[in-house]
Design a protein around this nucleic acid. Structure first.
Length: 281
DNA sequence: AATTCCTCCAACCGCGGAGAC
DNA sequence: TGTCTCCGCGGTTGGAGGAAT
């Protein structure tokens, strides 16, 4: 069976948005606000599905979107966040004001993946590295396209993709925000102000998340041996959403984690005590 | 100058979570 | 409690435009 496509209705536009459509959507949202995506297109006079409208607004039309190159700082933060959170693009985007999950996801796939891969490649024989780099440049996209088209050779070119983290984290439960909250955008922070830009009575700026400290590859590969996901798979790391305090604590956390990994005889116990040190009440 | 290859990113798709009923 | 509907997320695709040949 399967679910019917949301845009299956005949007559709905797909593909790139026109300036007219953009104008209609922007005008409507300015007048009525976000939300009610399902009914929005009809009310706004758009022949689009609600999802498409939401996506266009979230990723392109929103006034607070920052355009232009990702700065080195942002770059670095994305890498660190990704090592902690995995492909949780919306969460990562929440820490980068003005950036969208889609943008970060694209940036990761096009730039950072290669960057990470480059770092990994440094460990191999330089000649081999050079050769493989050349080969890669030639073939990567082609392979990708073929892979996508054929989508059958699961163990073929796919193996080239570096797994930065293993396995996919479970969906965290902590963000119990009202539905009207627009996900990532609700976590934007104002780096200039000392208080959160979205202070409310219930202090949503401080949110506890269960972050899986599966961390990066080295541990991930061996987690099963350790029974890492048994009693200790979850570490309640408190990610303070006030970024001013969040970022330094994240860095500290990350450094501590690296130190644990650097220990010659790092073991389950090391990781255990590291994880326990993160537990907060 | 023409063609092919590659990169980037906007947009689509399907799924799962959560609220409404 | 179960079902339906909406929303948001993450993976994937396709095409425009630039680079290389």
């Amino acid at each position: 069976m399967g679910r019917a496509p949301c845009c299956s209705k005949v007559g709905l536009h797909k593909g790139p948005w026109t300036t007219k459509e953009d104008a209609l959507l922007t005008k409507y949202i300015h007048a009525h606000g976000e939300g009610q995506w399902k009914s929005l297109p009809k009310k706004a006079g758009l022949l689009r599905c609600g999802k498409s409208c939401r996506l266009r607004w979230m990723n392109y039309l929103r006034p607070d979107i920052k355009r232009g190159n990702i700065s080195p700082d942002e770059d670095d933060l994305i890498i660190r966040m990704h090592s902690l959170l995995g492909n949780r693009w919306s969460l990562i985007a929440g820490r980068l004001p003005g950036r969208t999950d889609n943008e970060i996801k694209n940036y990761w796939n096009t730039h950072l993946c290669k960057k990470i891969q480059g770092i990994t490649d440094n460990e191999e024989d330089p000649e081999q590295k050079l050769a493989s780099a050349k080969k890669k440049k030639k073939n990567t996209k082609k392979n990708n396209k073929n892979k996508n088209k054929q989508n059958t050779s699961k163990n073929g070119s796919e193996e080239e993709k570096i797994q930065v983290y293993l396995p996919k984290p479970i969906r965290v439960k902590a963000l119990s925000l009202p539905r009207s909250d627009s996900g990532a955008s609700s976590f934007t922070f104002d780096s200039n102000s000392s208080s959160s830009s979205q202070e409310k009575e219930e202090s949503p700026e401080t949110i506890t998340e269960q972050v899986m400290v599966n961390m990066v590859g080295e541990v991930g590969e061996n987690y099963d041996d350790f029974g890492f996901w048994g009693d200790h798979e979850l570490v309640n790391a408190r990610l303070d959403m006030e970024c001013q305090s969040y970022i330094p604590s994240l860095e500290k956390l990350y450094e501590e984690y690296l130190q644990v990994l650097d220990m010659d005889d790092y073991s389950h116990n090391n990781l255990d005590s590291f994880a326990e040190s993160l537990l907060m009440d």
